[in-house]
């Protein structure tokens, strides 16, 4: 399974993250997300966390870092499909108050 899958559709750049969002995991995807963000300059950056199995402050740092970069470009950041566990950490650190969290109904 790829740690990162990027898709662009109608101004929405989706970065689907999978596996471990720890310091090791995020260092492998950070650059690719940023390259795509600067190239596409999307209206929305959608961070799809449905495949994330583990997250700690390094993963939260990745989200916040992209949020800062996106804001400079006028891009809105949306977090989608966090697991219950991921949501707990997002809430603990107040990220849920900065960004929209979208939970899709799984078919």
């Amino acid at each position: 399974m790829d740690a990162l899958k990027i898709t662009l559709s109608e101004g929405v750049l989706t970065a689907k993250l999978s596996g471990d969002m720890d310091h090791h995991g995020v260092s492998e995807v950070r650059e690719t997300i940023d390259e795509n963000l600067y190239r596409a300059m999307p209206t929305v950056l959608n961070l799809d966390l449905s495949g994330v199995e583990f997250i700690d402050s390094s993963g939260l740092g990745l989200i916040l870092g992209r949020y800062e970069k996106a804001r400079e470009l006028g891009t809105q950041v949306v977090i989608s499909n966090p697991s219950k566990r991921t949501k707990k950490l997002i809430t603990m650190t107040g990220i849920d108050k900065m960004m929209t969290i979208k939970e899709e109904v799984k078919k």
């Binding site: 950070r30 700690d56 402050s57």
Partner: peptide, 14 residues
């Protein structure tokens, strides 16, 4: 500058 948010110890504490 390295995407650190300074939450590590707070998380360990909770």
């Amino acid at each position: 500058g390295e995407d650190r948010c300074g939450m590590g110890f707070s998380i360990m504490e909770s």
